[in-house]
Design a binder for these strands. Structure first.
Lengths: 337, 337
DNA sequence: TAAAAGTGCGAAAACGTTTAAGAAGCAGCA
DNA sequence: TGCTGCTTCTTAAACGTTTTCGCACTTTTA
C-alpha cells in the first residue's frame, strides 16, 4: 500500500504537506497542492481508514443493528427493503455499512454498545430489533448518535412508517367498498402493533363501525399458521366478518388458505387486506389489497438523519419522522352493498 | 474510552505488559496476567479496532460485495438468505460484515478493490454481482482472499449451489410423474443459467426425453412478466408441454398467471416447477414443486472458507464447493399416464 | 562457583494519519 | 533598518495498539 510517506518522498515535501494538500487545508500553495494530488493519483494512493479513524475518531462507517429472535431479519421483505435503501443512501454520502454483531453465543462477547465503540461507528441505525432488550436500551442511551426505525424512544430520532394513517386509509378504503363487519387479526404486541390497533379502533369509531371483541384477534407477524387458525375462528362466528385485516401480507396468505379450504372465495365470499406491500403480492391472484409502506423513503430518511446527526450534532433536531405509505388496491376486497 | 494506558497505570505495569497479558503472550507471569485481565474487565476495557488494525493489518472485518443492476439484491430471497447465514457464521467466528461500497455515482469514488484496501478487509465474499464487471475481476485477481458464490473463477474459491444436480433431480422427479413433454423457460445468460440448461439437456437425453427447440425459452430471473409472455408462447404451441420449468419460483408465479388466464389449472391441466424454494411458496396453493437451494449451507460454507483462507492461507485449498439442494415436492406437478 | 538458560517485564519503535505550533521567506510599511 | 503580517511549508507529537529487543533476576547446569 502506498502511503503518504511515499508521496511525500516522491514530491519532495513533508508528510504533513501531503496530508493538507489532499484534505484541502488552506495553508498549502496551489502549485504544491496540485503536484501532490497529481502524484497521489499516479501512484494509486488511497488513505488507510484505520489510521484515519485512529487519529480523527471518525470512521465514516455506520453500524446497523438488524436482528430478530427468529432470524428472519434479512429475509424479511419489509426490513430488507429498508436496509437496501439505507445502504444506497449512506453509500452515496460516503458512509459504509457494517452490521452490529448480533452473535449472542460467543464467550466473551461484547455488548452491542461495546461492539459499536470497538468498531468506532460514527452512528448506528436500529432496524428490526427487540427494542426492549437491555442492550438495545443501553445503546440508544449512549453518546453514539442513533436512529431507530419504527420505534420511538425518548430523545432518539425515529423514522417511522405511518401506521396510524396506514390503517386509517385502509379502513376507509374498505368502508367505502361497503364493508361494515371488519375483523382485525393484528400482530403480537409491539409499539407498531399498538399504533395499528389503536388506529383501527379509532377509525372504526369515526366511521361508526362497531367492532365486536371477537373480531379482534392476534397472530404473530409473518405467521401463516397463526393467521390460518385465527381466520378459522373468525369464520366459525355466528356473524363472521365480511373483511379481515391481517398483520401483514405474508400472514394474509395463511388466512386465505383457511378461507379457501372452507370452499369460500376471496373476494367474492370474504375480503382480505394485508399490510406491507411485498413484491410477490402484485403477481398473485387475487391481487392483494394492502398498505404499501414506503421502504425506499424510510431507508433514505434514516440514512440522512443519522448522517446529519453525526455531522451537525448541534443543529439537528431530535424528531420523529413519519413516512406515509399508500393503499395499494388489488382485488382482494369486494364491493358489497 | 479506556485504553491500555489506563490499565497499565492502574496496575502499575507497562503498556506492553498489558497488551501481552490480554493477548495471552507467553512471557507474562500468571499473577500479572490475571491482575491485568481483572482490571481490564473492571474498567470496562475494549480494544480499539482501528489501532489494532493499523498495527496488525488485520481487521476481522469481511467485505461483502452484494450488488445487482436492478438493486433487488437485498430483497432477493435467495441471496438474502445466503447473506443472513454468512453473517451469522462470520459473527460466530469473530468477524464482522461490511458491505463493499457499491455506489458508482460518486465523484472520486474508489473501485471495489480500492475500497477493500481502504477498509482493510481481511477477505471478501462476492454474492450476487455481475461477475464480468472489470472491477469485480480486478478484485478477485488481487491478493485479497476472495470467495465467490455461484460463480467459478480461475484460482478463486467458489461456493456453488449444485445447479446441475438440482435440475437433474427436478427433471427426474417430473419424469417419474410421467411427464415427457417438458419445457424450460430458463434465466438469462450467466454461468448458473448455463449449468442449469446443460444439465437439463443432458438429463433429458439420459432419460430419452426429446426436447424440441421451441420448448426452450428465456426470461429474466424474477421476471414475472417475461415468464408470463413465454408461457403464453408455450401454450400456443401445437403440442404444448405438460410441464414447464421456470427460472425461479418468483417468475413461476408469472407463468401460472398466464396459465390461469387461459382457464387452465395447475397442476391438472399443466404442471409447473420453480427453483429456489422461497418461503412463501410453501404457503400458497398449489404448493410449488421446486428445488430448495440450501442457503444456510451456502452462507455457512462461504464464511468458513473465507476465514480459513485468511487464517491458513498456505494450507487452504482453492476449490469449488458444491452444496446440494433438495427437491421440494409440492403439488404443482401432476401425475400423468 | 561461574556460566548458561530461562522467566518476567519494560523501553521504544512502528503502523499511517492529523494537527498544533513554529519557522522561513517575503512584502509592505514606518 | 526593523517591525508586522502573510503565505507556505516543516517539525513533532499524538491516536492506541503490537512487537522486537534488551535488561534484570532466578534457576539450572557444568
Amino acid at each position: 500500500m502506498v502511503s503518504m510517506k511515499d508521496i511525500s518522498a516522491a514530491c519532495g515535501v513533508s508528510v504533513a504537506t501531503v496530508s493538507k494538500a489532499l484534505n484541502d487545508h488552506g495553508d498549502i500553495g496551489e502549485a504544491t497542492k496540485q503536484r501532490v494530488r497529481q502524484m497521489a493519483k499516479e501512484m494509486g494512493y488511497f488513505p488507510n481508514s484505520a489510521a484515519k479513524a485512529l487519529k480523527t475518531n471518525r470512521t465514516y462507517n455506520l453500524g446497523v443493528l438488524f436482528e430478530e429472535e427468529d432470524h428472519s431479519g434479512l429475509t424479511h421483505d419489509y426490513f430488507a427493503s429498508v436496509l437496501d435503501s439505507l445502504k444506497s443512501t449512506a453509500e452515496e454520502k460516503g458512509y459504509d455499512i457494517t452490521f452490529v454483531n448480533g452473535c449472542r453465543t460467543r464467550p466473551n462477547r461484547m455488548s452491542y454498545l461495546e461492539h459499536c465503540k470497538y468498531r468506532g461507528f460514527d452512528g448506528v441505525v436500529l432496524v428490526c430489533v427487540n427494542f426492549y432488550d437491555a442492550e438495545v436500551m443501553e445503546l440508544v442511551r449512549s453518546d453514539i448518535p442513533t436512529v431507530t426505525i419504527d420505534h420511538l424512544f425518548n430523545n432518539v430520532c425515529a423514522i417511522m412508517s405511518d401506521n396510524i394513517k396506514g390503517i386509517h386509509d385502509l379502513l376507509h378504503y374498505v368502508y367505502d367498498k361497503g364493508h361494515r363487519r371488519i375483523a382485525y387479526i393484528h400482530g403480537v404486541d409491539s409499539s407498531v402493533t399498538q399504533k395499528r390497533l389503536a388506529s383501527f379502533y379509532k377509525t372504526a369509531a369515526e366511521l361508526g363501525v362497531d367492532i365486536p371483541d371477537e373480531y379482534i384477534r392476534t397472530a404473530a407477524y409473518r405467521d401463516t399458521k397463526g393467521a390460518y387458525v385465527e381466520t378459522e375462528k373468525l369464520l366459525d362466528l355466528k356473524k363472521p366478518p365480511t373483511c379481515i385485516f391481517y398483520p401483514d401480507d405474508f400472514a394474509c396468505y395463511g388466512g386465505m388458505n383457511a378461507i379457501r379450504e372452507r370452499g369460500l372465495q376471496v373476494p367474492d365470499d370474504i375480503s382480505v387486506v394485508g399490510f406491507d406491500g411485498i413484491r410477490i403480492a402484485r403477481h398473485l391472484e387475487p391481487k392483494l389489497t394492502t398498505l404499501k409502506q414506503d421502504t425506499k423513503q424510510l431507508g433514505m430518511r434514516a440514512a440522512e438523519k443519522i448522517i446529519n446527526l453525526i455531522e451537525n450534532p448541534k443543529i439537528t433536531l431530535i424528531e420523529q419522522i413519519l413516512v406515509e405509505g399508500q393503499v395499494c388496491a388489488g382485488n382482494s376486497v369486494a364491493e358489497i352493498s
